[in-house]
Design a protein around this nucleic acid. Structure first.
Lengths: 168, 168
DNA sequence: CATATATGTCAATATGACTGACGTAAAATC
DNA sequence: GATTTTACGTCAGTCATATTGACATATATG
């Protein structure tokens, strides 16, 4: 199952299979972001706003530096996005309780509404794909995606129970 | 395995699992594009150039309209990219043999070199992830990605032999 | 000959990213 | 208590990638 050393042996994963993998990533990601993009366009927002809304909404309170660390963008890039979301009444800030230099970012109710609308399109698409492919394929998907990611980002994923056989 | 109807039943695919799926897509795609992006930066190119190089290189000859159909961008967006690639000596055009209005796009040798360098980083990453997760996980990944894609794009994927059990 | 198609180009616009430089407030440290 | 570091913000300039609209040209097709 985990014969990593021979992974580059073309007999195991021939050229065409790897090429198709590249294309699967491209087409799937495009489809996955299309619906949120369309919703966001109504607000004059883009994908960057979605990511900010998503990660703030995920854990209810988030400092600016945590957000920058997750997104890996510069604060100068984040600033205008956050300003727009604040002005639109989707995000609020409050000073940190322990460290008052920090700005704790939170979604307003309106922000939570939009977050749910955006994520719902992606959750439905995922649930449909999981349902079509089956739980074992879903777990395979998860394993491959984990392998593609930068391992440093593993810690950033939301916790979750395994998709199948929790007590193997 | 394919009980699609109950895919939205939260007992099958709970909130946290779907949320993690969203994050897997985001983090994996980011990691997957990071290395090519870094190589392209040396040339003053971006991800758009990569996509153009990739799809031209994939089938040796491609018309402008086929390229537009795959990428789903406007010809006004494509034009400057193609011009830069032509000027850099990576892409050439020749008039279509049947229809001389068409411009058949081809990679030069230099273009093929760059294409290989860019794709190689992605093929290696995929091969490593497939190797770590195993062939059955790789096939699960493929199935889920196919489910996420717009079905209209299925025809655009390169042909490939199934990853496992070709004669099931 | 008229029309449709394949492609190219000019202009104006927008998002989302970057770097560099500087400022402020608060916390941490010497 | 003074200094340094940290958390955050902002101003300015730049860039890549995308958009739409309008128009031009060559070729193919009816």
């Amino acid at each position: 199952m985990t014969d990593v050393k021979s992974a580059l042996d073309p007999r195991r994963f021939p050229e065409a299979g790897l090429r198709q993998g590249i294309e699967l990533l491209y087409f799937a990601y495009r489809a996955f972001t299309a619906e949120p993009d369309a919703i966001l366009a109504h607000y004059g927002f883009g994908r960057a706003h979605h990511r900010v809304i998503y990660f703030i909404g995920r854990q209810d309170e988030l400092t600016v530096s945590e957000l920058l660390a997750v997104l890996q963008i510069s604060k100068q890039s984040l600033a205008p996005i956050l300003r727009q979301l604040r002005q639109a009444g989707l995000v609020t800030q409050l000073p940190g309780r322990r460290d008052r230099r920090q700005r704790l970012l939170r979604l307003t109710e309106k922000g939570q509404d939009l977050e749910r609308r955006l994520s719902q399109t992606q959750r439905s698409r995922l649930a449909a794909a999981y349902g079509q492919a089956g739980p074992s394929a879903a777990e395979g998907f998860r394993q491959v995606m984990l392998g593609l990611m930068d391992p440093a980002d593993h810690q950033r994923l939301v916790d979750m129970a395994p998709l199948e056989s929790p007590a193997k």
